[in-house]
Amino acid sequence: MSLEKLSSQVLSIIADVTRHDVSTIFLNQSFDEIENFDSMERLNLFLRVENECHVQFTIEEIMKMETIKALISGIIEKQKISS
C-alpha cells in the first residue's frame, strides 16, 4: 500500500474514532493535540488500526507511539518485516 493511501486510511480511522472532520487532522499532530482524544479513543484507534491495516503491535510499541506520524511509520515498518 502506498504511503498516501496508508496515511489517508489511518487519518480516516482517527476521524471516525474521535468523530472529527478528517481535514482537521494532520500527519504531524500528536494524539494529544486532537481535541477530546482520550485514552479510550486511543485504545480504540489501535484496535482498529491493527485490524484494518493488518498489523500487530506489542504493548510496548503502543505505549511509545505518541504521534500519528509515528503510528504510520510503525505500520510501514511492520509491513516491511512481514513482506
Partner: peptide, 12 residues
Amino acid sequence: KYWYLGRIKYSQ
C-alpha cells in the same frame, strides 16, 4: 494486550 492497556478483553 488490550486487557493490560485498558481492561479490554477482545479483538475487533
